[in-house]
Design a binder for these strands. Structure first.
Lengths: 95, 95
DNA sequence: CGTCTTACTTGTATTTTGCAAGTGTCGCTT
DNA sequence: AAGCGACACTTGCAAAATACAAGTAAGACG
């Protein structure tokens, strides 16, 4: 299995990279992600669980029933890949 | 829609980036991609059609019923993004 | 003509995703 | 203490994407 395939196994699922991109701006709560991305709530819950299990992000309790999602070091390491993809997407629409 | 979302609209589907990665090594025929990637044949046909429509690759006739798939300039521009993702996948190595 | 290779298509089962509604917990108000 | 609203999910079901298996078309070769 190639390194690319390994990466896609973790962040290749739908919404995964978009969630990570959003978290690059700092910790976000569940409702924030939901509103900003327009992702279905069950998909968001599933992805957050998977990404946490993969060590990409972690939960941080805030108050009683609120918590924040924050990228781990491994999650932050996706910054370059996300930036490269976004650059490509930009050039794509412009050209 | 963010640039990342735009990019994922084109190359976010399953197998898409793996196909492009394979083509970075040079033109490949249908059977080559199928064997190397282990992708279902109907998915491969669908992806190749989509990627061609998106201007990522193009078909080049070889003989009677054989042709090669080759990346366009736009497809080649994915090299950085793919390399970044592969690097991340490598550093990940199970967690 | 029949056979082989290559590049697909078609049919159907399975998995993933999307939409709508419901659940549980806690703080706040009354 | 009872009711209400906000938040973070879960659950049920429909739609879409994907996987698996088999079939089709077209040309070279004998």
């Amino acid at each position: 299995m190639s390194n690319l395939a390994t990466a896609l196994d973790v962040v290749g699922a739908r919404w995964a990279l978009l969630i990570v991109e959003r978290l690059l701006d700092g910790p976000q709560r569940y409702g924030d992600l939901q509103r900003d991305l327009g992702v279905p709530t069950n998909m968001l819950a599933t992805r957050l669980r998977e990404l946490e299990a993969a060590g990409v992000l972690s939960r941080i309790p805030l108050h009683h029933n609120t918590r924040a999602y924050v990228l781990t070091e491994r999650g932050l390491a996706l910054r370059d890949a996300i930036a490269a993809l976004a650059r490509w997407g930009d050039g794509h629409t412009t050209g």
